[in-house]
Design a protein around this nucleic acid. Structure first.
Lengths: 219, 219
DNA sequence: CCAGAATGCGAGTGACCACTCGTGTTTGTC
DNA sequence: GACAAACACGAGTGGTCACTCGCATTCTGG
């Protein structure tokens, strides 16, 4: 009972972020980089903290100087990725210029997300595994609903008369198509990778084209 | 050295399948059923053999009376599923009647596979996890290439002039679309599930329609 | 230059898990 | 009914892994 993180005195200082030296910040970045590599190759659960420490060239004790536990490493990694994503997020989905042709809108959005994910394959590894820690699952869920919401907003202008449930379903299908395409894209390189990006766009365009067709037909 | 499974005498009897009683066969079925439930909820790696035994209502020792190790449980489960699948496999993809309209062909194939996977959710759980044991990964790979090969054969008649690489890529995209649809289908129930099956078919039809259009245009 | 904090180490600790073993019970066969 | 084999049990065993601890080293403010 009353086992909050409050300290004894009146001030609720639940965190004293332990003043870091430049060396510490460097180690953290180094450890996160190593963790990304290990998570990519073995997945989250199979990745051992000792392996991460070894990959970073430090001792297990050093790792725990900067992260309270294994989950915190994934959390911090996910948070940094999320932050980096949001920095340029609006560029990908926000501008819903109705004048933009569907092909172009889908093309740029897919290009942007594909580039982000191929640059940071950890993102997919952390989000996709069935072995994500509890806190990570929340973040994943949150991102998922956010993205679906954005897609819904885009679709709403294309499907003016549709029931909300239909719009939601269509948004989920679009995201599913993208994920399937991403998996294929990540599994290939060079020209083949580019071809799969092209295919992903085509699938989305052909799936959504009839909706636009209706709108244009009435316009 | 020479640590083969040969016995001392000349005969290389590396297996004496241990005569089973009816009770044993029942226990095996019971254990596989329990394993399916546990694998579905926790995934393969996170599933403990003790949990499987508990779910089946037997002791850990009893489990190891019938399976040499944890992987063997997944293997046997996968093998039985594969066998059951192949029993009715031809019905789903084999009959490539060129007279069948694309919609109908895709519709029946998707219906069949969706029904199989919703009846046996373990199949998806075992095939999809990043934590599959080595032997299981082989089986997965094999099934994957088999299915892709079948789809390629179907597509070949639709894309007569296309390069083999293009046909292969299209086949991979089709399978990816199906998997994405399956994930959405398994995440919903009742009417929503049916609606997602419908969407999956639509995505595939609209993706492949231009190919058929070419053929029909020339016919 | 010197306290004290931050950093770094790696052998250890406790928990968990796949798997085993000794022993007792049930079943099929003659 | 008697014997052997199959079945069943559950406490144990060895290994792995997340995480800790005591101690050495490096930085920072005064």
């Amino acid at each position: 009972m009353s086992d909050t993180t409050k300290k004894g005195d009146g001030t609720t200082k639940e965190q004293q972020p332990r003043r870091r030296q430049a060396r510490g910040e460097r180690r953290i970045a180094q450890l996160l980089h190593a963790a990304a590599r290990v998570f990519c190759t073995t997945g989250y659960t199979a990745a051992s903290t000792n392996a991460i420490a070894r990959e970073a060239g430090v001792s297990p004790g050093t790792l725990y100087q900067f992260f309270p536990n294994k989950e915190a490493i994934a959390i911090e990694l996910g948070d940094r990725l999320m932050h980096e994503m949001r920095e340029a997020y609006g560029e990908a989905l926000a501008p819903v210029d109705p004048a933009t042709p569907l092909e172009e809108a889908i093309g740029s959005a897919v290009d942007w997300f594909m580039a982000f994910n191929t640059d940071h394959p950890v993102f997919f590894a952390l989000m996709h595994g069935p072995d994500i820690p509890g806190r990570m699952a929340e973040a994943h869920e949150q991102l998922h609903t956010t993205v679906v919401g954005r897609i819904e907003a885009l679709l709403a202008s294309l499907m003016p008369g549709a029931a909300p449930a239909d719009v939601t379903r269509t948004a989920h299908v679009c995201l599913g198509i993208y994920k399937a395409g991403l998996e294929l894209v990540l599994a290939h390189e060079g020209a083949e990778r580019a071809a799969y990006i092209r295919e992903t766009k085509d699938v989305l365009i052909r799936y959504l084209e009839p909706l636009v067709g209706d709108r244009l037909g009435r316009a």
